[in-house]
Simulated assay, not measured.
Amino acid sequence: MLSTGALRAHLLAARLAGPVATSREESLRSYRLFAARDPRVLLGLDPRGGWAQPELLRLMADKCGVSADPAHVSGPDVIDPERTLAGLDAFARRLREAALARAPVLFGTGHPHRLLGFYADVARALSAVGCAVLTPAQGVAVDIVTRFGVRTYRLGYVRGVALVQEPGARAAGGAIGAHTHSPLPVRIALGALAQAGRPLPELVVGDHGWVCGAGQLGFPAIGLADTDDPALFVGEAEGSVSVAVPLDDGVPAEYYRPLTRYVLGRAGLTR
């Protein structure tokens, strides 16, 4: 199993933590939009608290390690690797609980070109110990509001992980899918399971709207989030999201492989 020290070094070298590619300007803009209840950054969450921007900045400093100084308005943002490690340990514990319970699990990502491999390897490990990896509503149309207007996608699955695709797209090589923050895909997937009377997930694993949308509906949800995704950390603070792991969610896909080894080792899911 990858050691904590080795993973910490990798997080910093790959810029998954420490100074990251996400800029301070991007993060502060997201906090302003979240405080204004802009659905683009709420990701399906309906926060109970007021979460004005100063309060949100303090939360993100606590959860991620970003600067709490409101006068710091430019440059790269920063994630504390110790908080990332703690988040990954909590993530692994939830995977271990699901594995022991042989729980049905739903995986979904809005970052298929970056994070698909991470989730797919976790899905495979859970399936190997008897967890049902759910794939509901495959091929169903999803109308998502984008900056280009409403676009229709299809809900698809690659290696057990849900994503949205352009109509007619093939998941060649397991990497084709659209980047999205929308909670609509997870709502459609969960609704299809309920309508069919099939078992519902006892854990949802993913990012963006997959985690917040599921958590808002009361499903245990864990996932990864960058410093410009405050919704997951607000959800964790309020109890609707079980685990939010702070890290850069936009680095090359291969940089997440050591994280996979680490969480599967911690969860007791390696052979």
Rank of each mutant, 00 (worst) to 15 (best):
L203T: 06
L59E: 05
G215Y: 01
P39E: 05
V20A: 02
L232M: 15
L247Q: 08
I222Y: 00
L43K: 11
A125T: 00
G197L: 07
G168M: 10
V73E: 13
Q216R: 13
L56K: 07
A125E: 00
R147G: 14
A6P: 01
E254H: 04
V78E: 15
L33R: 14
G209W: 04
C212P: 13
D229G: 13
V105S: 07
C131G: 09
G50L: 04
F107Y: 01
E25D: 11
D69I: 03
L126G: 00
A178I: 05
P167V: 14
V186K: 06
G250R: 10
R159W: 10
L203P: 04
G197V: 02
L28D: 14
A231R: 09
P81Q: 12
R8E: 06
V122I: 15
R29K: 10
L247M: 09
R94Q: 06
D228M: 03
P70R: 07
M60C: 13
G235T: 15
A61H: 04
C131A: 01
R8Y: 04
D249Q: 02
V66S: 07
Q53Y: 06
G177N: 02
G173C: 07
V73W: 08
V205Q: 12
E236L: 06
C64R: 04
A21R: 08
A35K: 07
P54Q: 13
F91A: 13
A171H: 05
E254Q: 02
I222W: 01
L12F: 02
G206P: 11
D38I: 05
G209D: 08
A92F: 01
E55V: 12
V164L: 11
V41F: 02
D89M: 09
V251N: 07
P54Y: 05
F91T: 07
H10K: 11
P220K: 04
G75N: 14
A36D: 04
L224F: 03
A36R: 15
D229K: 11
R40C: 08
R8W: 01
L7W: 04
R151K: 09
C64H: 03
